[in-house]
């Protein structure tokens, strides 16, 4: 093997090792974009007050929304554990019961997740509305969510 080739091979190996470490070692910890409700429960008291992201499904029937105060409350679940979430603000259009969401914020001492931001996670599926399935109907469902507690 020529010295020049050996140099390249050595350099390549160093770079590959560094990348491998970044992907499967060091970055693995920091690249956890969100924790699940189960993981949050396991952290217990330890999680209180720390900036966190929690991801899961918005539990069906759990969404409470007051358009006058913009107070939003719902439960985020991963099928095993679920965490109560509070937020003040308007959720994104795709936020809905039975869909994925990621919330950013902190856990308060009483175990409630106080979210500063709500992110809707959508699926990779794309399709036109089916026969009889009006997209306006979906929009209507969202409107009913918005009007859960009509302004008096």
């Amino acid at each position: 093997m020529k010295p020049r080739h050996r140099k390249f091979l050595l350099g390549g190996l160093v770079v590959a090792a560094a990348l491998g470490y970044l992907i499967f070692g060091g970055l693995q910890e920091t690249l956890v974009y969100f924790v699940t409700p189960t993981e949050l429960r396991e952290q217990g008291e330890h999680a209180v007050g720390r900036a966190l992201r929690v991801g899961g499904m918005v539990e069906t029937g759990s969404v409470l929304w007051d358009p006058r105060t913009l107070d939003l409350a719902f439960r985020l679940s991963d099928g095993v554990a679920s965490v109560p979430v509070r937020h003040r603000g308007v959720p994104p259009d795709l936020f809905a019961e039975g869909r994925g969401a990621v919330v950013e914020g902190t856990v308060t001492a009483d175990g409630v997740f106080q979210a500063s931001q709500i992110l809707a996670k959508h699926s990779e599926e794309y399709r036109p509305p089916r026969e009889g399935e009006d997209r306006d109907a979906l929009r209507e469902r969202f409107k009913s969510l918005l009007k859960e507690k009509p302004a008096s």
């Binding site: 599926e125 794309y126 399709r127 036109p128």
Partner: peptide, 21 residues
Amino acid sequence: EWWRTLHQPSSLARGAIDPVL
């Protein structure tokens, strides 16, 4: 696939797009 992300998985690779789209 390797990490939890907000971005959804690849629709093309999974064949998750209706032929019309």
